[in-house]
């Protein structure tokens, strides 16, 4: 018998029969897991199983390769906190959709910690948006395609890094990038220093950067393309503007 109990972020819920649901969740110790939740499509549990909510999940199965069943103890209802905020609701959906690319049953504790920080910051949109870009960078790193933003790919300098090469994913200094600047991604300063706050279109530049590498290095493998929820999130940010 396989069994564990852990804190989990709900990523997705699909109705299974009349009252049950198959729920996809992300845990610190066990990674992304699915399980049949009896009563998961019923009135009592449905609110707790909204994407983005934190719950206590107890999973068990006779054999580890089985889908397994999970019982859910409701935790913090992050989804309810952002239902009326279009930008954050779209961002939360995008976060859950992106996490569904993670391989099942492999632990990514650092990524889980990043997700928790992101969820905790939901009350502050100005903080949340740059954190979302950092979350995407962390996701790239966890799946083995991290960007190298520490030094210039051309000159090796660690100063005045302003762009990122779309091919190598490495930072490029202002001087070295000058002849090719139009073909390179802008590297927002807030990605280089935790103290720097995003200005102007920095968040959108950051999302363009991470979106390119997520699509090229992660999502192109299964030809599905970036999740539609992420596309919608970026579209909303472009239309409504990003608070600086």
């Amino acid at each position: 018998m396989e069994a564990w109990t852990a804190e989990a972020v709900i990523l997705d819920r699909r109705a299974h029969g009349e009252s049950s649901a198959i729920v996809d969740f992300f845990t610190r110790e066990h990674g992304r897991y699915g399980g049949l939740v009896r009563g998961g499509n019923a009135r009592r549990l449905k609110p707790a199983l909204q994407p983005g909510n934190m719950v206590q999940a107890s999973w068990r199965a006779r054999l580890s390769e089985h889908l397994g069943t999970a019982t859910i103890d409701p935790g913090r209802a992050y989804a309810a906190e952002v239902l009326t905020d279009q930008v954050l609701l779209a961002g939360l959906s995008a976060m859950c959709a992106l996490l569904k690319i993670m391989p099942e049953r492999q632990a990514y504790p650092r990524l889980f910690d990043t997700v928790v920080v992101l969820l905790e910051a939901l009350e502050n949109r100005e903080v949340w948006l740059p954190l979302f870009v950092r979350f995407e960078l962390a996701l790239l790193e966890e799946v083995g395609f991290g960007l190298d933003l520490t030094s210039c790919a051309a000159t090796g300098t660690r100063e005045d890094l302003t762009h990122v090469s779309p091919r190598s994913g490495r930072a490029v200094s202002r001087q070295a990038a000058a002849p090719y600047a139009e073909r390179m991604f802008v590297l927002p300063a807030f990605l280089l220093s935790a103290d720097a706050s995003p200005e102007g279109d920095d968040v959108l530049h950051g999302l363009s950067l991470t979106g390119h590498f997520l699509e090229r290095r992660v999502y192109r493998v299964d030809t599905s393309g970036l999740p539609a929820a992420r596309g919608r999130f970026v579209e909303i940010l472009r239309a409504k503007g990003v608070p600086a």
Partner: peptide
Amino acid sequence: DDGTLIAAMR
């Protein structure tokens, strides 16, 4: 549930 309470408070 917590979600309803949060929504009600907001």
